[in-house]
Design a protein around this nucleic acid. Structure first.
Lengths: 299, 299
DNA sequence: AGTATCGATAACCTCTGGTTATGGATGTGG
DNA sequence: CCACATCCATAACCAGAGGTTATCGATACT
């Protein structure tokens, strides 16, 4: 019998958090829809996969068997998708590179130039990814590599080449009461509301609200944004402040947003990331070589 | 993005015979439906997979990339399905065994008895498979093992345990002009129409029309059947004659069908077949052990 | 006991995915 | 050289899959 991989992804989500309701909102569908999906999957494999109880959904033996193998199916498909995209790109001499908002900065141009030198007849297509699901484009092969800021979710599934490291500063509304001070300590910001990335990004979000420097103190979330424009607007709007790489002061300068030095937070590293089965000989290999050439030794 | 494995199977079919029209009839859907499926798949991966021409469909570079990886996805899913079915069977203490029509004979009872001795609390469910796609039930784990007659399609994908070998005879309508003779030579039957299995079964069909003993002479197909009842009816009806294992004379005796010895055709072997990743410790292992115990040494 | 929570169900609507019938382009045989 | 067969694309149509909101019944917690 046949399945849609979407059913498998839904199944995994339900299996992971043991609840239809929660999984449904994580998947951005309604709970009844997810109920139907799970029933359909059960009909498809001919076995009950969950024990329903008021406390939630618990895997049955059959369910556990599927949980152990479903991932392999999804990964096989993702790999197939990547293979197709890579072949397609090869044929049309286009290299698709993603960049996480605010990860593309001065380095980018140098790397592109070095790549053009190696493959003059190729074109590089840059695609911006939101903070919502930053690795999605990489996983499906929609881009063959991406400039990312570390850490990001499922980072270990990829090869990483650190490119540069830069201090972080703090961005705030021009009229913010702390904006008058030339430089700040992170301790001064502990109680400020922050403009943050969506919660599912885990370690990424944590890093940018300075979780490591908080010693467990909860952060106040003033707003959640996915894209630089929203982010800047939220900051300018006074919804909260945010940590930002120093280069943001140059790339995202606005009259209603100021950037101030801040002490006591770790710097931020930009890396090039690509799927683990590394490129055999394609254009991506040349792009990586170009990146290696341009990388800061310190990073 | 997500796919239905059906799309992948359709894609494979089209890729294999390079024609929408032919693939469509092999898949038992209309040609426009298949056209849509392929377009949908192309939309899904974001690349053209085929070059359309009047001569047929030829894979593009991207198509070749998918052809190389799609099989892995399908196999991963089939394996997942098997795992679920196996877990389900384990939980309910049911072992599902398939048998190709006319493969179940005296041996079966002995094996079942030997298995019952090892696992008294288990139940064995026997499921008959048609000749149309005899390995389907095995591939999807609908049954965990099956009694098959060799050869059968994709035979190498399974572990095989030969159980017995028996001569083949010929079945024909009681009123057939050759029915009067007590025994026949296969040469006498070369021009007779045969009742055969469906064409896609390849080597299996060939074996049962005696292709090996024909030295290339075409067989006349009088009828195509999938199940023993149709088969017997077609023979009784005079649509053609057929080779049959000797035991068929006992298990499929009918007043309007006679079985006659025939010389010059190889005997037929019955084997137990199960998917290659062999059972670790489950009930299937005991079933196989029971079968080993009952197997003819000669087979 | 009252309430919040969780999964199941019902009613409804849209769009997917199938069908048949037909068209246009390209080789092929008389 | 024309008639024809073949192959894929398209159109029109129809059933059902798969989503939504609203509601229910059962359980656990306060």
């Amino acid at each position: 019998m046949d399945v849609d991989t979407r059913l498998l992804r839904s199944f995994k989500a339900v299996a992971e958090d043991g609840s239809l309701t929660r999984a449904a909102e994580r998947l951005f569908i309604s709970q009844p829809a997810l109920t139907k999906q799970i029933r359909q999957l059960e009909r498809c494999v001919g076995a009950r996969l969950f024990d329903r109880s008021k406390a939630g959904m618990a895997l049955t033996g059959a369910g556990r068997a599927l949980a152990g193998t479903a991932t392999a199916v999804i990964e096989a498909w993702d790999a197939a998708e990547r293979a197709v995209r890579a072949a397609e790109a090869e044929a049309s001499k286009v290299l698709r590179i993603g960049f996480l908002a605010s990860a593309a900065n001065e380095k980018t141009q140098a790397i592109l130039a070095a790549f053009r030198e190696r493959r003059p007849d190729w074109r590089v297509e840059l695609r911006q990814a939101g903070w919502g699901d930053p690795t999605a484009a990489l996983a499906s092969g929609e881009v063959e590599a991406a400039f990312m800021r570390l850490p990001f979710p499922d980072q270990d599934d990829y090869r990483l080449l650190p490119l540069l490291t830069e201090p972080r500063c703090v961005a705030m509304a021009a009229g913010h009461r702390l904006a008058a001070r030339e430089s700040l300590r992170f301790e001064d910001l502990l109680d400020e509301p922050f403009v943050a990335a969506p919660a599912p990004t885990g370690a990424f979000r944590d890093h940018w609200v300075g979780a490591a420097a908080r010693e467990g103190r909860e952060v106040r979330i003033g707003a959640v944004t996915e894209h630089p424009d929203d982010w800047l607007s939220a900051i300018a709007n006074g919804d909260g402040i945010a940590l930002a790489p120093q280069s943001a002061a140059r790339y995202y300068a606005r009259p209603d947003v100021v950037y101030r030095e801040v002490s006591g937070v770790a710097p931020s590293t930009v890396a090039l990331a690509w799927p683990k089965p590394p490129p055999r000989d394609g254009a991506l290999a040349d792009f990586i070589a170009a990146a290696v050439e341009c990388a800061d030794d310190s990073a």
